[in-house]
Design a protein around this nucleic acid. Structure first.
Length: 329
RNA sequence: GGCGGCGUACCCAAGUGGUUAAGGGAGAGGUCUGCAAAACCUCGAUGCAUCGGUUCGAAUCCGAUCGCCGCCU
């Protein structure tokens, strides 16, 4: 609040908005049918797809992420799929860099970029950038985390309150991840993370965007999620997880929904039936959280997948060709 | 038809006369700036099958009715 003046100073309103490149977005919760929808749309639009799913980035995670099949990828060129090994870490900043690079590449070749995915934060940073603070410092982070384990997260929150009251006010005392990140940034730079955030303010927009969201009635979405997980099991998800485990992976893959439950089954901790039940439930909860995130993005145009691609096609054709003004920047 | 048991939220369930009816599951709403398929926060019965009675006071006791379950005929 007290810094409102500074905020307006670093936010010169982009007057040349209409001249920025145009990027389409297809978002939606898991199981809503983004993949098939996006591929058909991209084909008709002459677009290439830039993946914004935090797990489809990984090789070896195919079945459980409902990754578009090779045959589907032959119809439309996809970017940012299978670019990392399962033991490689990625984060929002790195993703934004990669995605923006891919978008630039698509545009440079005269094609239309269509970003497709359900990872809320990733989608946000692609569109609006991320503050240019220090990257995570694993050693320091581990050290802060160890301290937090000893002292408890409320104590760490109190400490944060001393150096960065603004951040402390926004972060819940139990939210250890964000407390640690805030302390990390402070120890690395001597500057409070709230200052970086305030100065950045998600105002780094490189292109105009139009976002179409896929929406199903809740009960219908949940039923589709449950059904799809059974299909994944039938398609060999257990074997896929076993392969990841055999390769000694510890990173994001085995902490992903569907994967971690099957891994617990393979370790003999729970029955397969229970693993399936848990995976379905976690997938439903994920979908719910995604919807919460997307609802907050007011500019999204929502459509039902069963309507078909028609309306989205018209919206995007107009957007890419003339600029409909529906863009959110 | 008779006898017995049971009916508390979407589900399971504690409570057997005395402040605002435990708890769990499922679910809903939300937060989100470098691990995000992560992490974190918040939330359901003016109501105990229904009606009537006893009592200062009833989910708790009594009666009737309805429903479910079991046994018997």
């Amino acid at each position: 609040m007290k810094q409102a003046v500074a905020k307006s100073e670093v936010l010169p309103h982009p007057t040349a908005a209409g001249m920025r490149p145009r990027v389409g977005f297809i978002v939606g919760p898991t199981g809503a049918g983004k993949t098939a929808f996006a591929i058909e749309l991209a084909e008709r639009l002459g677009a290439e797809i830039v993946n914004a799913d935090s797990r489809q980035i990984y090789r070896g995670m195919d079945i459980g992420t409902a990754k578009p099949a090779v045959s589907e990828r032959a119809r439309v060129r996809h970017h940012l799929i299978d670019i990392l090994e399962p033991n490689q870490a990625i984060n929002a900043a790195e993703f934004a860099r990669l995605a923006r690079g891919a978008i630039g590449d698509v545009i440079a070749r005269g094609k239309r970029p269509l970003v497709v995915g359900g990872s809320g934060l990733y989608l946000r940073v692609v569109r609006r950038g991320i503050f240019s603070g220090p990257a995570a410092a694993p050693g320091l982070r581990a050290e802060i985390l160890a301290r937090a384990v000893r002292q408890g997260s409320p104590q760490m929150h109190r400490r944060l309150g001393e150096i960065d009251p603004e951040a402390a006010a926004r972060i819940h005392p139990n939210d250890l991840k964000r407390i640690v990140r805030a302390l990390e940034v402070y120890e690395l730079t001597g500057a409070p993370i709230s200052r970086y955030h305030r100065e950045h303010a998600f105002a780094d927009r490189e292109f105009e965007s139009l976002t179409v969201g896929l929406m199903l009635a809740r009960a219908e979405l949940y039923a589709a999620i449950d059904r799809r997980f059974d299909t994944m099991i039938a398609a060999g998800l257990v074997e896929e997880v076993a392969a990841l485990m055999a390769a000694g992976n510890q990173g994001p893959p085995l902490s992903s929904i569907g994967y971690r439950e099957i891994a617990a089954y393979l370790r003999g901790e729970i029955t397969l039936e229970r693993a399936i039940e848990l995976a379905k439930r976690e997938s439903r909860r994920l979908a719910k959280r995604q919807l919460t995130w997307f609802r907050a993005e007011r500019e999204t145009v929502w459509i039902e997948p069963r309507e078909g691609v028609g309306r989205a096609l018209r919206l995007f054709e107009d957007f890419f060709a003339h600029g409909s003004g529906a863009g959110d920047g």
